[in-house]
Amino acid sequence: MNFVIVVFTYKDLLEYEDITIEEHIQSSPQGLQNLIHRCGGRMTTINNRIAPWSNEGDVNAILGLVEQVKLSNGGNYYTEAMFEAAEEVFQTKLEELKAQLTRQGIHLREYEVREKIRREIEENDGILVTFAKGIEKTFDKTGKALKDKWKKIISVFK
């Protein structure tokens, strides 16, 4: 959770309804509220219906959160080793659950077992680790790439 940033798309819909993201979150299901709380409130919005060159504020907000995550983690990023450790825990838990169910004479289909384990892990924040697999590979590149692309886009329209 120390590495999670939540980015909501369709910021324009919030603007149309004249509500803030915080107001939207307050009226959202408790699970979403818990997620936002567990990741330290690191969330932002982006309007993906406007021209990219008009979206500098949203892009900067995302990059700011990326920098905040980096600083709050002592300059460390979510790494492949972290992902692999989490994946190993997931697979171990999956195998334990399968064995337990088999001992109980319960034979569920694979997707049912996966869904059961997903729910258990989600309760312990583990499911979010699986969403972060790509973060380590793109985290460092993303900030620079977004800035570079943004500069190219802006230069075309100046």
Rank of each mutant, 00 (worst) to 15 (best):
V59F: 10
E56P: 10
T102S: 14
Y16P: 09
L14S: 03
A51R: 12
Q104V: 06
S28M: 00
G134P: 00
I154Q: 14
L71Q: 06
K70M: 11
I50R: 12
I19P: 03
K137Y: 15
N34V: 05
A81D: 14
E122D: 14
A85H: 05
G31C: 08
V113K: 11
M82K: 13
V66L: 09
F139N: 11
Q30W: 05
V59G: 05
R38A: 05
Y78C: 00
P29W: 12
Q33E: 15
F157P: 08
L101W: 10
G134M: 00
E15I: 07
W150P: 04
L128T: 10
R103I: 12
V69W: 00
R42F: 00
V59Y: 08
T138M: 04
D58L: 12
I46T: 03
L65S: 02
E136Q: 03
V156P: 14
L108M: 02
Q68P: 06
A86N: 03
L35Q: 11
N55T: 00
H107C: 09
L101E: 01
F3I: 10
T79F: 07
Y78R: 00
I62N: 00
L35P: 05
K93T: 14
M1G: 14
R118H: 15
L32I: 12
T142S: 12
N73I: 08
L128F: 13
T44H: 03
T142F: 06
H24P: 09
Q91Y: 15
W53N: 14
K141H: 11
A145P: 15
I153G: 05
L14F: 09
N124W: 14
E123F: 02
H24F: 15
Q100R: 15
D125Q: 04
G57D: 11
I25N: 02
W150R: 01
I106W: 12
A51I: 05
E123N: 02
V113I: 14
D125P: 05
A81G: 09
D18F: 15
I46L: 04
D148S: 02
D140N: 13
H24G: 12
I154R: 14
E22K: 15
E23H: 06
H24T: 10
I50Y: 11
E112G: 13
Y78K: 01
R49I: 12
T79H: 05
G126V: 03
L35S: 02
I135D: 06
E84M: 14
K151G: 05
G64I: 12
R114C: 08
T45Q: 08
R118N: 12
Q33Y: 10
L32C: 06
T20G: 01
E22G: 09
N47Y: 02
D12A: 13
Y111S: 08
L63D: 04
V6C: 08
T44A: 03
P52Q: 00
E84L: 15
H107I: 07
M82G: 09
I106H: 04
I62A: 06
V4R: 04
I127V: 13
F3K: 13
L97R: 11
I153T: 06
F90Q: 10
E95Y: 11
L32R: 07
